[in-house]
Amino acid sequence: MVVFRTAPYGSIYSFEGLENVVMMAAYEQDLTVLFIDDGVLALKKGMDNAATGIKDFSPTFKALEPVYDVEKLYIDGDSLKARGLTLDDLIIQPEVIAADQVDKMMEDQRNTMIF
């Protein structure tokens, strides 16, 4: 399972975490991806990198389900709410879960990587 909990651009965790997800998706049928805390911000619509030149990798998040067949996409509803966002603000619509489901989700997976 791969967990995104860091905002994009300010550091490379999100981007390289995503490269890892794309690779894992090619191998593993049962990959789970979860967005929590600042990790939800990587899915925000309307990113504009024209002035900075930092690669906008959000199209790859958008492609996770249709192109890379990652179907188990989840997001912590409270993390979204805490940042004043709803699913409508995002480029994809992962299934909303509650924070208290996360520990069990991790426990059910062989290993968890947090980016």
């Binding site: 890892n20 690779m23 894992m24 090619a26 191998y27 593993e28 062989r110 290993n111 990587m113």
Partner: peptide, 8 residues
């Protein structure tokens, strides 16, 4: 891919 292998 060697990280994926390792995670598995």
């Amino acid at each position: 891919g060697m990280l994926t292998d390792l995670a598995i």
